[in-house]
Amino acid sequence: MSSPGEAGDDAEIIAAALRHPERFAALFDRHAAHIHRYLARRLGGQVADALTGETFLIAFDRRDRYDPAFPGARPWLYGIATNLAGQRRRAEQREYRLRAALGPPSDHDSHADRVAERVSAQALTGPLAAALAGLAPRDRDVLLLIAWEGLAYDEVAAALAIPVGTVRSRLNRARKKVRAALAPAPAEEVSNHG
């Protein structure tokens, strides 16, 4: 175990926070940016601000139930955040539709990069947002944790408290539906009515 001056792994921080609650702040410092980014991508910045704080409040309240066999708490935190996002699913679908109309946010340095990125992304934003909104919530959760947050299958399984095989099947189903939604429509055949 780490010396009192060192933070240690996440499980050690959580264990120490049972007796010294102020130590839980180190967990926030390590993971808040990741959780916020995930929630902002799903629900927008203002909602992400509130839900990031709520994620860590719930984690703090449940710190006595954390399984110390897992040295990294990020999947646990993603699970809490995903559950909070699930409580706002209808608002999330409205947000996807709004984002489809507005286009993607830009984070590039140059104006030329922003314009090129926006033109490219606008071609897919509407159909992609519609495809994401049309997914079953459980399938969307898996897809977004893997695609946006880069979690491995076992991390998604831990975050959502489901078996890895379920992660794979949900991801496969989500990918098929998104691909089908983004596939170009076949050209209509011209029929001769002679």
Rank of each mutant, 00 (worst) to 15 (best):
S2I: 04
S3L: 12
G5K: 02
E6M: 07
D9G: 06
A11V: 06
E12T: 12
I13E: 02
I13T: 07
I14K: 08
I14Q: 09
A16Q: 15
A17I: 06
L18P: 02
H20C: 11
H20K: 11
P21A: 10
P21Y: 09
E22D: 05
E22N: 05
R23M: 05
F24L: 10
A25M: 04
A26E: 13
F28M: 05
H31G: 01
A33V: 14
H34S: 11
H34C: 09
L39G: 01
A40I: 01
R42C: 08
L43A: 05
L43N: 00
G45H: 15
V47L: 09
L51N: 02
T52A: 04
T55N: 02
F56G: 01
F56I: 07
A59P: 06
F60M: 01
D64L: 04
D64F: 04
D64W: 07
R65I: 03
R65V: 04
Y66M: 03
P68Q: 09
A69Y: 02
P71D: 04
A73H: 02
A73L: 09
R74W: 13
P75S: 00
W76M: 10
L77I: 11
G79I: 03
I80G: 07
A81Y: 10
T82S: 15
T82I: 02
L84D: 06
A85G: 08
Q87N: 05
R88Y: 12
R88M: 15
R89I: 11
R89F: 14
R90S: 10
R90V: 14
A91S: 09
E92K: 08
Q93T: 13
Q93E: 14
E95F: 15
E95R: 12
R97H: 12
R97E: 13
A100P: 04
A100I: 01
A101D: 10
A101R: 11
L102R: 12
P105H: 08
D107H: 14
H108M: 05
H111K: 10
A112W: 07
D113Q: 15
R114C: 06
R114F: 07
R114V: 07
R114W: 00
V115M: 03
E117H: 15
R118A: 15
A121H: 07
Q122R: 13
Q122T: 07
A123F: 07
L124V: 15
T125A: 14
T125E: 09
G126V: 07
G126I: 03
G126K: 02
G126C: 02
G134C: 01
D139N: 11
D139L: 05
R140W: 09
L151R: 07
E155D: 14
V156T: 05
A158F: 00
A158T: 10
A159W: 03
A159V: 08
I162Y: 08
P163A: 06
R168Q: 14
S169F: 14
S169P: 03
R170Q: 10
N172F: 11
N172R: 15
R175D: 12
R175T: 15
K176V: 08
R179G: 02
R179I: 11
A181G: 10
A181P: 03
L182A: 08
A185T: 15
P186G: 11
A187Q: 09
A187K: 10
A187D: 11
S191W: 13
N192M: 08
H193W: 14
H193T: 09
H193P: 09
